[in-house]
Write a protein that binds this DNA or RNA. Structure first.
Lengths: 329, 329
DNA sequence: GTGAAAGCGCTAACAG
DNA sequence: CTGTTAGCGCTTTCAC
């Protein structure tokens, strides 16, 4: 079955040149005369030669692979980001290898290490792990990029979205609609984004307006399961940690015969593709996946080329008002 | 920064054994006396040694990586599958490297080849490419698994879900509700699943019942954009290629003031997580991602261990009746 | 511009 | 059970 592999040697021999020349032609590393280039390419085509990626990696010390560790691939937020980076990286000749930690804080170190072992660098999306883990990963001497998590101590590069400002604006939007009793549905505890969003809610000091936090989590199920507790508060508007939770909550409220936004207004965060297809369409904060993905890859590529780590890119965004928010009755 | 790498040599020297022994201890390939094992492990820990994955791959000829080519990572259908396989593979010590062809038929060969170059095998999810491409990929001598696509000629292993039967049942469900004029919203042209689903619709020979096909595509946008054409047919029930299209269509119909299922019944296919959270909850066909993912990985693992290719696993499933279908007015 | 040769770090016969 | 050794296929000085 497995026909003898065609190596650089065969090509060199067939083209009447040295292996070094063949290597140079394929790596375009140093110039080779037109004639030899043609001969090499011709021989390679005839023989059906393809460079052996693993051997190239061992010899050169670069794998042209970058690892991506994501807390939960089931969140559209992340795959939109990944899809973006996949293409950005592809353009630079890099492949992404992804692992999913399933929101498990404990799984991050091992997965990260394993990923780093077969790659030139690691991109950590919304990591929940402690900074000592990040430090250890960084100790491997390979670039580490952190997305959606602010790290001050270690000199890691990061891409962040300002969650605070738009979350505050979103809350103000509900207040301006006339809501006085708000509920904030909290997301994953260890998430930096959660901390920022909650900080924004807490910062909302408007006379007569109260904000009640309710612990939920970041999934649709979590949202649905919070319906009871939300209703018990008697609030008129709910700001959910993210779109998934908001969508789940809306479904849960509907099941209780409560209409959105008729009886209660609900907002999300992220603006996942579904957000504009739900009924009512979801009022949320747009997360610029394209920009985040591009910025992340560009910085990663920079690190791979020797840029000094420690840079931080902070992106901004704003609320998108759609149909799930309305004045209270 | 990059402290000198600790190699198997250092460990061997420090433990006072040969490199072969160290290799054996880490590979657990052949038995090593307790004493030496302890000494090696101790030295390794002291020195902070980690096996170099790339070197292992080159020397052993196995990468412990498997490639996954997916047409569109933005479809929850696929990432649920991938997430499943990710974990199944992880358990066997394999890492998955994924590429997204963006529904581009033309991109599949190159991406597939590139993936195969750094892996021990390739899993192709719903490939759209011609069988000659599949054959070429198979010619690399590495295992190829095909999911959601029936290939008869080449002896490739595959995992399939019977789309025909449940699609037919779903259609019968609408007929039994009293619908007489059905519309079928067609998905991606080259998709095997699309062919099967459409075949099921065509096979529906019930006197007095007509089925009108409308070309759409597989995304939510495609669904929404079909609303006009759907309304123009005067039908009372629409069976969409998949959940995404169905969700898009429902949004589109709502925008036209048409209610679902009040005015028109709509069904999907796949039962993505969102399907039960839309309002109305979507009547669809459940796709057993867990089973598909597990079966796919098990077969892949088998091939990796030398199983003969060509096996075909056909899974079955059925419709899930929820709230988006109702008798016509 | 081109070739020779020394590895990259590890595995897998093969001997003992 | 353990050590020796010859590569895996390619890159990369270093001479020419």
């Amino acid at each position: 079955m497995s026909t003898e592999r065609v190596t650089i040697r065969h090509v060199a021999h067939s083209a009447g040149v040295s292996v070094a020349t063949v290597s140079r032609v394929f790596a375009q590393s140093s110039s080779v005369s037109e004639e030899l280039t043609a001969r090499v390419l011709d021989a390679a085509r005839r023989l059906g030669y393809t460079p052996h990626a693993v051997a190239q990696s061992l010899a050169s010390g670069r794998t042209r692979v970058v690892g991506v560790l994501v807390p939960n691939l089931a969140n559209p937020y992340f795959y939109a980001l990944i899809k973006n980076m996949l293409h950005e990286a592809d353009r630079d000749g890099y492949r992404l290898i992804v692992a999913d930690s399933d929101e498990s804080l404990a799984a991050e170190p091992a997965l990260g290490m394993s990923l780093l072992g077969r790659s030139d660098g690691l991109i950590m999306l919304s990591p929940r792990c402690g900074s000592e883990v990040l430090k250890e990963l960084g100790g491997q001497g390979k670039p580490i990029m952190v997305v959606n998590r602010q790290i001050d101590e270690l000199g890691l590069s990061s891409v962040l979205l300002d969650n605070f400002t738009p979350m505050r604006q979103l809350a103000m939007h509900t207040v301006e609609l006339g809501h006085r009793h708000l509920v904030y549905l909290q997301g994953p505890v260890r998430s930096w984004q959660e901390k920022e969003r909650w900080r924004a809610m807490r910062s909302l000091r408007v006379p007569g307006v109260t904000v009640t936090p309710i612990r939920a989590g970041g999934t649709m199920e979590n949202g649905r399961d919070s319906a009871d507790r939300v209703l018990a508060t008697g609030c008129t508007a709910v700001l959910a940690h993210n779109d998934l939770t908001a969508i789940g909550l809306i479904a849960g409220l509907n099941e209780h015969g409560v209409s959105v936004p008729g009886d209660i207004s609900v907002t999300g965060f992220d603006d996942i593709p579904f957000a504009r297809f739900t009924s009512p369409a979801l009022t949320t904060v747009h997360s610029p996946q394209e920009d985040i993905g591009r910025a992340t890859w560009r910085m990663t590529a920079g690190l791979l080329h020797g840029d000094r780590p420690g840079a931080r890119t902070m992106l901004t965004t704003q609320p998108v008002i759609r149909a799930s928010t309305a004045p209270p009755k």
